[in-house]
Nucleic acid binder design. Structure first.
Length: 554
RNA sequence: GGCCCGUUGGUCAAGUGGUUAAGACAUCGCCCUUUCACGGCGGUAACAGGGGUUCGACUCCCCUACGGGUCACCA
């Protein structure tokens, strides 16, 4: 009786669906993968925007799949046309590609790749409806014709009565509607959503094991959630169950804000007769909200500065972001990194067990430290090519200067690089310009002043003597001996030791003389090693700047 | 508010019943040094609170507090 009713209802609702679940099972058979291989996915909406939290979980997905010889695919969750952004999918693929995250299958810039597609949910309508129709046949789902106003009405009554809001029990007016009632609405062309006929009980709970949270308490779902929207498209929950089953996902990685809907997902998988994947609900990356002073999860709308593209534009090399995220993901990563400074992060034995169940605050200090460290290990050539790639897009002035004479630029980047204890001047590419601007005449300017306590005549004399004695061929020691000699001639201590013993005997020390020269050449009180600077600048430029500085002394 | 998750120094965090409670970043001091950066050495700094269980709790249980998340035809 009721079975007949359900069969008729299913035909009434989805007459155009001729396929059955078994057709889908045949079309998407279990994957032929070695034991232990994990299948994971990254499943964004095509908004074109990826923030730190997204790549945080994408990295986990990627590592789990590729470390186990499995499959990592990209699925586009575009069931809500309102969220879609023109070219959003391409933007996401490009951005992830910049960070070295690649997919084995899924949506690509020219169509889909792989045997389990389509990988864009908007193209999977028939698949969802096949399962939805089956659920109706089995009496596990039913149409609901309530208008948004009616639902709002129900909701406010529930709130007034301090009841759990939602479509369930006596509030679920279409749950037990007769076939005739449904037919009437259908004939009148009233739009409907499909709802799950929940079997759960409010207040009941059970244990569930999440791979990072461990054993957690889950309340039974008892709400007749929407599974197919009035446009016939599934919502997230239904699509998740159908897609991850058919695409044979073994591990679902998502942030913990999904935990509250886990009960629904569990009921959905049971109703559909699917085996549950393993779940990895990750803690969130948080920030301190400027207004409240409290921690909160990153928000796409409020925190554009945590968008991946923002970090990219700021010049953080993608690998630096990855390195930082790895330290957050697996706490033993830093130790491993110190022991294996030259290995690629993919060689690190990534472990689910090491994922922390608690949220973490994003730390720019730490990011910058990692940035300095990573960049300090690059060769001058690598630095040059990465800086120019970045500057080409985000700092045309810098790009123009360095690309005009690559070997000059590389000589600059070579200063203090390559040894056991390399300089760490840059955490990100936007730090480069302020550091090297003085090497370029167009960017050079006197930024710092020599303290007025020094006699201008001394400064002039020191620089004149330098000009007379400077030989580019001198080695480091010979060069500095000459600076010492100049110091002595002016009545400045030629050795720091002498000066410290009796500062009253001298007008200053050799360091001060070097400082005069430093300001003349770099315009600053601080700079990289002067001998190196001199040689990069070249004799001509050195002489020119020193003369000009002498002139400016008046 | 209901439900769920979390809580070791300023930050990220080791720890899995007996530790002087690691390490990294930040911070402070000293050293190296012609400036800066690097590097070296050292310091300050933590188990949210209260009950149990136990010979013994950071570790196990309960309660409280605090923090976070979530309650859509959005994902």
């Amino acid at each position: 009786m009721t079975e007949d009713k359900n069969l008729e209802l299913a035909e009434l609702l989805y007459p155009h669906i001729k396929t059955l679940p078994e057709d889908m099972e045949r079309r998407y058979p279990p994957r032929n993968l070695p034991e232990g291989a994990k299948v994971t996915r990254f499943a964004p909406s095509p908004t074109g925007f990826i923030h730190l939290g997204n790549i945080y979980s994408a990295l986990i997905d990627e590592r789990l799949a590729h470390q186990s010889g499995g499959v990592f695919f990209l699925r586009i969750e575009d069931t809500d046309e309102k969220r879609a952004v023109e070219g959003g999918t391409e933007l996401i693929i490009d951005m992830l590609g910049k960070y070295g995250i690649y997919f084995d299958e899924g949506a690509t810039k020219d169509g889909d790749k792989g045997d389990y597609g389509p990988y864009r949910q908007s193209l999977r309508k028939e698949i969802y409806q096949t399962y939805a129709k089956q659920l109706v046949r089995e009496g596990k789902a039913y149409p609901c014709f309530c208008s948004p106003e009616e639902l709002e009405q129900i909701r406010s009554e529930q709130v007034a009565q301090k009841l759990t809001p939602g479509y369930y029990g006596k509030w679920a007016k279409w749950r037990d509607a007769s076939l005739d009632e449904v037919k009437k609405m259908l004939d009148d062309g009233v739009p409907f959503v499909l709802r799950l006929r929940s079997q759960g009980t409010e207040g009941k709970s059970f244990k569930f094991t999440d791979l990072v949270k461990g054993e957690i308490d889950v309340s039974e779902n008892f709400i007749d959630h929407v599974i197919l929207k009035s446009n016939g498209m599934p919502d997230y929950h239904f699509a998740h169950a159908v897609d991850d089953h058919l695409m044979r996902t073994t591990h679902v990685v998502r942030d913990e804000s999904w935990l509250p809907s886990l009960p629904l997902h569990i009921e959905l998988f049971r109703a559909l007769g699917f085996k549950m994947p393993k779940y990895i609900h990750t803690a969130q990356v948080l920030k301190i909200d400027e207004e409240t002073g409290k921690k909160r999860k990153l928000s796409k709308r409020k925190d554009p500065e945590f968008g991946l593209s923002f970090f990219y534009e700021s010049g953080y090399p993608p690998i630096v972001m990855i390195e930082y995220l790895m330290t957050l993901l697996n706490s033993n990563y830093e130790e491993w990194r110190m022991a294996n400074p030259d290995k690629h992060y993919t060689e690190f034995p990534f472990s689910i067990k090491k994922l922390s169940p608690s949220g973490c605050l994003f730390d720019f200090d730490k990011l910058n430290d990692i940035g300095r460290d990573v960049i300090s290990r690059m060769t001058a050539d690598e630095v040059y090519s990465q800086v120019s790639e970045w500057a080409k897009e985000y700092d045309p002035e810098l790009y123009a200067e360095i690309s005009a004479d690559p070997s000059y630029a590389k000589a600059i980047f070579a200063i203090g690089r390559g040894g056991k204890k390399p300089r760490k001047d840059f955490a990100k590419w936007s730090d480069v310009k302020p550091y090297l601007s003085f090497f370029y005449d167009r960017l050079f300017k006197i930024e710092d002043e020599i303290e007025p306590r020094f006699d201008k005549a001394d400064i002039r004399r020191a620089l004149e003597l330098f000009l007379e004695s400077y030989e580019e061929a001198d080695d480091r020691n010979a060069w500095f001996d000459k600076i010492k000699a100049i110091a002595a001639e002016l009545g400045y201590a030629p050795e720091m030791k002498l000066y410290k013993e009796s500062p009253e005997k001298y007008k200053g020390n050799v360091g001060d003389v070097a400082m005069f020269l430093r300001v003349a050449l770099t315009g600053r009180l601080n700079s990289p090693d002067l001998y190196d600077v001199l040689h990069v600048l070249g004799k001509e430029r050195v002489a020119g700047r020193v003369r000009e500085f002498i002139g400016s002394l008046g």
